[in-house]
Design a protein around this nucleic acid. Structure first.
Lengths: 153, 153
DNA sequence: CGGCGTTGCATTAGCCTCTAATGTAATCCC
DNA sequence: GGGATTACATTAGAGGCTAATGCAACGCCG
């Protein structure tokens, strides 16, 4: 291993560890603030999960890193808006299956469209190489997030 | 302009616009959840701003995208913890200058150290090329965030 | 099959942080 | 100098979360 490369990697690691939390927070806040739909971060996360299929209350709580009562209340809110529905789990009388309604899928698409519009506008100024770098970075972040989420705590 | 490149760029733009909000939210939540220090996202942002120098209440409100009363309350909390201090602005009797104390700088360093530890652990599994891509992506995100923040609304 | 610990969700009370509306004092400008 | 403006504080209220608790269904072991 060449010394020069090691130093470069180490410097980049520090830079990333320093900057990534801040950038992630800033971006997250920008998206939440600019959206005309009033959807909280956890609500958006739940809608995305439900797009993959029905989930139990406690499953959602685990996936979104909040407590089970928080999901119960959140599902109540989404149910009031007609975006999700509760149904009985045939295999377990205690459990509840939450699933996305058609209106919920529409809402999710509208939310995505807003984010897309917001980003496309700014990304028009990016060069091709930069776009490609960002695309690769998203993939890497994806794995990073998966690893961090699998951590015991 | 070659058609192939245009298609590639367009595909990547869609991919980024789709994934970036989600990844940013997920990362932001992970950092906030895993930190042992109870510091809200806005509090962390304010501490980082103050590291660059004293700010007025309303300046902080503009930079952190929250209302002025929210910053007044937030500065009260940080003041109670001994992390910031208020002082009079010599050039304007109405204004208040908020500045970081030594304890505040320490707290910020501890917070950064936690994030660093959390990320370094996982990033050990990344390849050199991936680290470099992430480092470049952070720079690009930085410009993107700056552009988005400068938007009227 | 009967009883008991466990599991899954709902409910309640309370906290934290934000916004909106308003108040107060200092400043600017004609 | 006086009215409009600016900078911050205060208050009331809402949203979203946690912790503690309750209740019903499940599963297992004797």
């Amino acid at each position: 291993m060449k010394p020069g490369e090691t130093t470069l990697r180490s410097r980049h690691l520090d830079e990333i560890a320093e900057a990534l939390p801040q950038r992630a927070s800033a971006l997250s806040q920008i998206f939440l603030t600019r959206s005309t739909m009033s959807v909280s971060r956890t609500e958006a996360g739940v809608l995305r999960r439900l797009e993959e299929g029905p989930r139990r209350i406690s499953e959602l709580a685990g996936e979104e890193q909040v407590t089970q009562p928080a999901i119960t209340l959140l599902v109540n809110r989404l149910e009031d808006r007609g975006w999700v529905q509760r149904s009985a789990d045939p295999s377990d009388g205690r459990a509840v299956l939450v699933s996305l309604t058609g209106a919920g899928a529409d809402a999710l698409h509208r939310l995505r469209a807003e984010y897309r519009a917001l980003l496309h506008e700014e990304m028009a100024t990016l060069q091709d190489g930069e776009v490609e770098t960002l695309a690769e970075a998203v993939q890497i972040l994806d794995r990073l997030i998966a690893q961090l989420s699998d951590r015991p705590r």
